Simulated scan of single mutants.
Amino acid sequence: MSPRLPCQHQPSCPTVDASDREAAQPIAHYPEQGWTLLCNGVLLFEDTGEFLPDGSVVSPHRPLTGCAA
C-alpha cells in the first residue's frame, strides 16, 4: 500500500480517528456505484457504511426514519 499524502485542504480534513471523519473532503465520488473516497482514506458507502484504511469496517449507521404502525 502506498503511503498517504497529508491533507492539503485548509482547514485540514478530520483524520480517520476523528469522530467527524465523514466530514473530510471527497477525492473520488461514484454515485452510480454508491461510494465516495474521502481525503482521509475512508471509503464511504451510500448506506452510510464505511471501510477504513486499516481494513476495518463500520456498519451502516443511518438514522431510523418513521416507525411501524
Results as ranks from 00 to 15, higher is better:
residue 4 R to N: 09
residue 4 R to T: 14
residue 5 L to F: 06
residue 5 L to M: 11
residue 5 L to D: 14
residue 5 L to E: 15
residue 6 P to D: 07
residue 6 P to Y: 03
residue 6 P to I: 05
residue 7 C to E: 00
residue 8 Q to D: 13
residue 9 H to W: 05
residue 10 Q to E: 15
residue 11 P to R: 03
residue 11 P to K: 03
residue 11 P to A: 10
residue 12 S to N: 14
residue 13 C to I: 03
residue 13 C to P: 03
residue 14 P to M: 01
residue 14 P to H: 03
residue 14 P to I: 05
residue 15 T to C: 02
residue 15 T to I: 00
residue 15 T to M: 00
residue 17 D to M: 05
residue 17 D to I: 01
residue 17 D to C: 04
residue 18 A to G: 00
residue 20 D to I: 02
residue 20 D to W: 04
residue 22 E to T: 12
residue 22 E to P: 02
residue 22 E to I: 09
residue 23 A to R: 02
residue 23 A to Y: 11
residue 23 A to D: 14
residue 25 Q to H: 15
residue 25 Q to N: 15
residue 25 Q to S: 15
residue 26 P to G: 11
residue 27 I to T: 11
residue 29 H to V: 12
residue 29 H to E: 12
residue 32 E to L: 08
residue 32 E to T: 13
residue 33 Q to D: 14
residue 33 Q to G: 08
residue 35 W to F: 15
residue 35 W to C: 10
residue 35 W to V: 07
residue 36 T to M: 01
residue 36 T to G: 06
residue 37 L to T: 05
residue 37 L to E: 06
residue 38 L to S: 03
residue 40 N to E: 04
residue 41 G to E: 01
residue 41 G to H: 00
residue 42 V to D: 08
residue 44 L to G: 04
residue 44 L to C: 00
residue 44 L to Y: 05
residue 46 E to Q: 10
residue 48 T to E: 04
residue 48 T to I: 06
residue 48 T to R: 06
residue 49 G to L: 11
residue 51 F to W: 10
residue 51 F to P: 06
residue 52 L to H: 08
residue 53 P to L: 09
residue 53 P to W: 00
residue 53 P to R: 06
residue 53 P to C: 09
residue 53 P to A: 07
residue 54 D to M: 01
residue 55 G to L: 01
residue 55 G to E: 08
residue 56 S to Y: 05
residue 56 S to H: 13
residue 56 S to W: 12
residue 57 V to D: 10
residue 57 V to S: 08
residue 58 V to Q: 00
residue 59 S to P: 00
residue 59 S to I: 00
residue 60 P to V: 03
residue 60 P to T: 04
residue 61 H to N: 13
residue 61 H to I: 05
residue 61 H to A: 07
residue 62 R to E: 13
residue 64 L to G: 06
residue 64 L to Q: 05
residue 65 T to E: 09
residue 65 T to Q: 10
residue 65 T to S: 11
residue 66 G to K: 02
residue 66 G to T: 00
residue 67 C to K: 10
residue 67 C to N: 06
residue 69 A to K: 07
